[in-house]
Design a protein around this nucleic acid. Structure first.
Length: 573
DNA sequence: TGCGGCTATTG
DNA sequence: CACAATAGCCGCAG
């Protein structure tokens, strides 16, 4: 059975569990039985190395679960989010965008009721007369035949052509097409991350948790008892009757502190930290907070819910969430306390190759703004050193100033150095100011990779008839900071995904897998014997991504990564 | 029961 | 304590 597709063809694929798959290129179509999906796709992959086109990452999840991991893809949902911004997607919205019809009030299917007969309805056409997709037709796909899947694939192919043409029209054209591909690859990677999970040493994790909150409680009553005992370690410092105080209530904590003569506007840890000497109860409270955090969020329940019997921590991954399109993950994969990192451990005979990008945001700023002077600073391993020298300030001040410029800070220690930045790096600073000014005025922005950052219909803060008062100015300033930062953070996210996609492609033949993406950090799990090879891939992949990033940029920017081979995540510096 | 406020953690 | 995110618990409104 030879695949009739042309080398490198764009092949739309629609799959349904138990039904099979329909494959469609411009001039070729094919239907595959459910049982043969993974083998047939693997054959085609080997023969013609196509780019697979699908409606949503759910297709990627289906393929990964059948054992087929495509090399290249185009995820209509991922590209849609790139084109129109935000996190919303789905076939109905994607199709409406392609048709140029209203996307505010999309048709929905009626709630299923006793009168609608499953498997038998009148919906025979996918597109309604008003141009919208018929949601009932789409939702019924899974129980239809391969002929319907073929229709679904042909619509995907149509949207793919349209999206590619739209990207061509953008002023960021070359970057946007390449971003569409890496965003798609990142979505596929998300499906793999969900399947593979992060290797965890369960016994080690339990020991760490126990060191904070004691042994695993046998039942709810014991859990409550242990919690009460932890509370007591704080309350016993109080003069007078302990009463029935709830340490989880900030207002209670504030009045509790008042009883020992401490007055604070809020009870955040960084504020209490400076008051440790004032009264022993402060230290007890901070220790209690730490334990409480482990108990509620990263305790035994977390372990039981998210770590499988195979010792893998699994969460849901999104390839582009939020304003800037960073990757996000649930199950604590992105905010695990450092104390728990020793429990992230490679399997037997395996290691992690860990790499994190150094000073990624200022380097990205140099690239997207084409600031020659700032780009020159990126030639150094520590780019804040030359910046500090040029500004005549310490390295720490220089760092705070650069970060402050990207975040939109206007007060504090960095404020003075900020003025120095404006004369030393006028191009980069003008780039940021321009983004902030546009965002303040409610104008949409696009990152270098072409992602739309919506400021016009932003749910952030809409006000009807607001007088130009303090509140309105404050909201405008907030929009400015939001937009200014999104241009840098968003481009950094795109760069990271380009890097991750490259590493994914190169590391797969070695038999290694990416098990964690953390904004500027990659964790690759591989056999110990392959550590050196994987390390090279990670480093070379960065050079490749950096080179691609510098195309069309006047200034040449250097990107750096710190790479190490470790057995536990905590071993990294 | 849903939502805003507060708090914690991470990059 | 600026930018982004997930997630828990509390009090309050409905």
């Amino acid at each position: 059975m030879t695949a009739p597709f042309a080398p490198g063809a764009a092949i739309a694929i629609a799959v349904a569990d138990g039904v099979g798959a329909a494959l469609l290129a411009d001039d070729v179509s094919m239907v595959v039985d459910a049982a043969d999906v993974s083998t047939v796709l693997a054959d085609i992959e080997r023969a013609v190395a196509p780019r697979w086109i699908w409606w949503s990452t759910d297709t990627a999840r289906t393929l990964v679960s059948t054992g087929f991991r495509p090399a290249r893809c185009w995820d209509l949902d991922a590209v849609h989010r790139l084109l129109v911004g935000g996190w919303r997607g789905g076939p109905g919205r994607i199709w409406a965008q392609r048709q140029g019809v209203d996307t505010i009030d999309l048709p929905r299917t009626a709630e299923p009721d006793l009168f609608s007969l499953p498997g038998h309805d009148d919906h025979t056409a996918p597109v309604r007369p008003d141009g919208h997709l018929d949601p009932a037709w789409v939702e019924g796909l899974w129980r239809f035949d391969t002929e319907h899947l073929r229709t679904w694939a042909s619509l995907a192919l149509d949207v793919h052509h349209w999206q590619a043409a739209e990207l061509e029209r953008l002023s960021q054209r070359p970057a946007a097409i390449s971003t569409a591909r890496s965003e798609s690859a990142a979505a596929l990677l998300c499906a793999e991350l969900e399947t593979d999970g992060l290797p965890i040493d369960i016994a080690g994790a339990e020991r760490i948790i126990a060191s904070f909150i004691g042994p695993r409680p046998r039942d709810a009553a014991e859990e409550q008892q242990f919690a009460g005992e932890r509370d007591q370690l704080v309350l016993e410092h109080l003069p007078g009757p302990p009463g029935d105080l709830d340490l989880r209530n900030p207002a209670t904590v504030k009045s509790l502190l008042r009883r020992v003569g401490i007055e604070v506007p809020d009870t955040r840890a960084w504020r209490l930290e400076r008051l440790r000497d004032q009264d022993p109860i402060v230290d007890a409270l901070l220790t209690w907070r730490r334990a409480e955090r482990i108990a509620t969020t990263f305790g035994y329940r977390w372990l039981d819910q998210h770590v499988g019997p195979d010792g893998r921590l699994r969460g849901q991954w999104s390839a582009s969430d939020g304003a800037a399109g960073r990757m996000t993950a649930t199950a604590g994969l992105h905010n695990m306390p450092v104390e728990l990192r020793p429990a992230v451990a490679a399997g037997a005979d395996h290691v992690f190759v860990r790499a994190d990008l150094g000073q990624i945001e200022p380097r990205i700023l140099a690239a997207v703004s084409s600031d020659d002077a700032l780009a020159a600073a990126t030639w150094e391993d520590d780019m804040y050193a030359p910046v500090a020298e040029r500004l005549g300030v310490t390295r720490d001040i220089a760092k705070v100033a650069v970060l402050g410029a990207m975040y939109g800070q206007t007060t504090g220690h960095g404020a003075v150095a900020l003025r120095g930045l404006e004369s030393a790096y006028p191009v980069a600073m003008a780039y940021l100011d321009n983004a902030a000014r546009l965002a303040e005025g409610g104008n949409d922005l696009r990152t270098r990779g072409g992602r739309l950052v919506r400021m016009s219909s932003n749910e952030q803060l809409d006000e009807s008839g607001d007088a130009p008062g303090r509140a309105a100015r404050s909201r405008a300033a907030a929009r400015g900071r939001y937009g200014r930062n999104a241009m840098v953070q968003g481009a950094a996210a795109e760069f990271f995904k380009t890097w991750a996609a490259t590493v994914r492609a190169r590391v797969t033949p070695i038999g290694a897998t990416i098990v964690l993406c953390l904004h500027d950090e990659l964790l690759v799990h591989c056999h110990s014997d392959d550590a050196a090879a994987v390390s090279s891939v990670v480093t070379d992949g960065l050079q490749e991504a950096g080179h691609r990033w510098s195309v069309g940029v006047a200034a040449s920017v250097r990107f750096v990564a710190d790479t190490s081979v470790i057995e536990r995540w905590s071993e990294a510096k």
